[in-house]
Design a binder for these strands. Structure first.
Lengths: 187, 187
DNA sequence: GACCTTCTAAACCGATCGGTCTATTAAAAA
DNA sequence: TTTTTAATAGACCGATCGGTTTAGAAGGTC
């Protein structure tokens, strides 16, 4: 029996894609082992507490990525450049809409109750970071908050419709529209 | 043992709420019987093909409701009034964001593959009906299509964020913003 | 080379899965 | 009243669930 050695970071990334495609309840251990080629032995070696730990670490991993790649830049860097980079990071992270938002998907059903604070924190920080950046760029508080909320809402909605319609173009079109509106307000 | 008699339409509505809350995979037969008080005997009497038939009939039921309450009015009635009614129907159907869109939720994971054409048809017709109404109200084709798409995207995104943030106000705020923007373009 | 630790493979476990079946009830049809 | 039919309750079934355990392979250390 051939033995393949994985790193934990590989395991997190591989299992993440399975949860993304199947949802928390849909991702059975047998589907996870089949799709990742990680045996149960490996999975329970990396995640002794099982499925719930896998999901928790995956979400923490995603959250950490967003913090360094999007939220902190928005909070710390020059707003117009940071916002411009946010649109590009968003498009590439979600693969132009071909990849769903795992955190958003978990929020829709009662999987939400297992990970309430993680889910809440992710979206809250995204909106707050973006709104903060818009305020630094000169917008009034209310307007910044509304525009930031509109952007995150639009991103999530576009991900849903991209999958629902099997349409590879709607996500890019939505990002472009949101971005254009934001730049119009900023100019 | 007390015997409660249900109508099939009751069964469809009750089971629908369970799928809405738990998703397709999360809604196990035992959860369905526990939450609806319908026994397995009743469920398999109404839906001899089981879970997949339940979901299919629920989606058909939802689709039919949307056709009569939203899509046909948009297609047949005076556009401005029909659009105004659409916003109110949307707000009340989704209970101001406290109720998720079952079709949108199914679209996110591989449940989508079981019901591809139903999911596609629902969102396609919604966008087309709204765009058609906007064209009748005087908008150019492109602008109508973009605005309709933006509205449906926004509704879906707001439903996701309402659950993610546990925020009862974001859905109404999003609808108001979308509606205001649409009316600004129409005036 | 012997030994220990890390990691993988897969058999195995009780619980739960979706689905079937039988018994029974209530009401309609005769 | 008797018979038939539609519907409900829940025990039951094999398969699959998430999780545990055992066995052994690979690699480092001495």
């Amino acid at each position: 029996m051939a033995r393949t050695v994985f790193e934990k970071s590989d395991a997190v990334a591989l299992v993440a894609e399975v949860f993304r495609e199947l949802g928390y309840e849909g991702a059975s251990m047998s589907e996870i082992t089949a799709r990742t080629k990680l045996s149960k032995g490996s999975l329970y070696h990396f995640f002794p507490e099982g499925k719930e730990q896998m999901a928790a670490e995956i979400m923490a991993d995603i959250d950490a990525w967003f913090v360094t790649e999007m939220f902190r830049p928005l909070e710390e860097q020059e707003p117009r450049a940071a916002i411009a980079r946010m649109w590009e990071t968003t498009d590439s992270y979600f693969r132009s809409g071909r990849r769903v938002c795992l955190i958003g998907a978990f929020a829709l059903d009662e999987t939400r109750d297992r990970f309430t604070s993680m889910i809440h924190g992710y979206f809250h920080r995204w909106i707050e970071a973006l709104a903060g950046s818009l305020i630094k760029a000169g917008l009034r508080n209310n307007e910044a908050k509304a525009l930031a909320e509109e952007a995150v809402v639009g991103i999530q909605g576009a991900l849903t419709l991209a999958r629902a319609l099997g349409d590879d173009t709607i996500f890019g079109r939505t990002l472009a529209r949101l971005r254009q509106r934001m730049e119009a307000v900023l100019s």
